[in-house]
Amino acid sequence: MKFEGNTHKFGNDVNTDYIIAGRYKFKTLDMKELAKHVMEDLDPDFYHKINAGDFIVGGSNFGCGSSREQAPLAIKHADISAVLAKSFARIFYRNAINTGLPVVECDTDLIDAGDELEVDLAGGNVINKTKGQTIPAKPLPPVMIKILNDGGLAPHFKKYGGFNL
């Protein structure tokens, strides 16, 4: 899987309340509706700034806080192709893989807002086309590659009837 798009840059400790606030996520399963409010408390116009395929780039501990799976789903349904961060909070990381949102761990200090990126999930590299720089990415654990290749945990279960890792 290879993606190209522009960078929307955020800081450290972007929590899941910022990604999708509780006042929205408790009342609907319509992820397209939730997507309109993605990152709203950090940037009220964020949804309107996204072009399909863009990347969210954070600092360390991206996705900390609550276990809400609506967070990766809202990002995915806002047409963000992948999230890049120096590190991810544990539950968000699992939720992203389980729901098929690519997450990439790399040195995001080398990426600025607006940079054009190419992300090759299989090759494990991030190319910053604006800066002409290749940034090595930490490979996903094999268990997660298996789940991601099956399209997420639900298709994995559908295929095998349980965990087959």
Binding site: I91, R94, A154, F157
Partner: peptide, 18 residues
């Protein structure tokens, strides 16, 4: 430990978690 909704569903189906 806390998990997301899809992991929870996997647990409900299988009684297991990785």
């Amino acid at each position: 430990t806390g998990v997301g909704s899809t992991d929870l569903a996997g647990g409900l189906v299988s009684g297991k978690m990785w």
